[in-house]
Nucleic acid binder design. Structure first.
Lengths: 141, 141
DNA sequence: TGCTATGCCGATATGATCTATCGGCTTTAG
DNA sequence: CTAAAGCCGATAGATCATATCGGCATAGCA
């Protein structure tokens, strides 16, 4: 499961992507539209800023903007920031590899092959899904 | 990420699958081979027993056995018992669907389509991977 | 120049979840 | 009837998730 944080992050980015114009958007307004608590979202946006996914303007008339073209922001990018690796075990993570605590010998691990396949399958989907595409996908009535 | 519990569960089942004979295997021996704490594993095995994945023999000469052919026990089965749904959000879970807490209108949710694809991709892998196959996959030197 | 809107940032709070461990009960083979 | 084994409820400590608070830093604008 994704954390609530990840869902807020993804929703916020979609809100930003749909927001017209070059003027930054207030945290409070993003929070409103993304249905997220303002202060919590503040933290989330800050983390995403550090990773270059969004950028900000400080001071009066400030706010947040996307850090790059929404076509170049993937679900995988966002989830890695908020929730960490996509992989089901540290030993099959591409971005944050380390040995599993209980692992005796990785070369003999009977789980590794399957977990690697699962990671690849998940990553394939999340890396080709962009914020731009999600933002474009609107209600059909 | 899988929980430690899930990894212990999977390892234990592989140990059981590799264990010859019809005699049950002691929790202590399984714990030993799966590199898991005995008492913790006891709880895990009990849960898996309730779901029919393993069965047990009580009293003297007792122990644990697989509940069915290891070809019919999938990684997905086990992970659902120990960690819950495979899906990245409750709203795209097949086995435990419910609305996301922050969701305003599911029909308009911009995340849902992607999360559903991710779930399906993960499930495809984990549902076709069996304990039998993992148990057969041994060291090549 | 200084007021005020705004983001930045560290501290704190609360509850849930994860990872166990303990001790006693129940069952059953011999 | 006793010893070996699983069953089961309680508890405990650590970590994580989900926030909230209060004050600092920055920058537009009068």
């Amino acid at each position: 499961m994704l954390s609530q944080k990840a869902r807020y992050a993804l929703h916020s980015l979609i809100v930003l992507a749909r927001h017209d114009g070059d003027e930054p958007m207030l945290i409070a307004d993003i929070a409103d539209e993304a249905n997220a608590p303002r202060k919590f979202l503040e933290q989330i946006l800050l983390e995403m800023k550090k990773r270059g996914i969004v950028r900000s303007q400080r001071g009066r008339q400030g706010g947040y903007l996307l850090g790059r073209d929404p076509k170049d922001i993937t679900f995988a990018d966002v989830i890695r920031v908020t929730d960490g690796p996509l992989a089901l075990a540290p030993c099959v993570s591409v971005t944050a590899y380390h040995k599993c605590d209980d692992c005796i010998d990785e070369k003999v691990c009977a789980l590794r092959r399957v977990l690697l396949q699962a990671r690849d399958a998940t990553a394939e989907v999340l890396e080709r899904s962009t914020i731009a595409a999600a933002a474009a996908n609107r209600r059909k009535r």
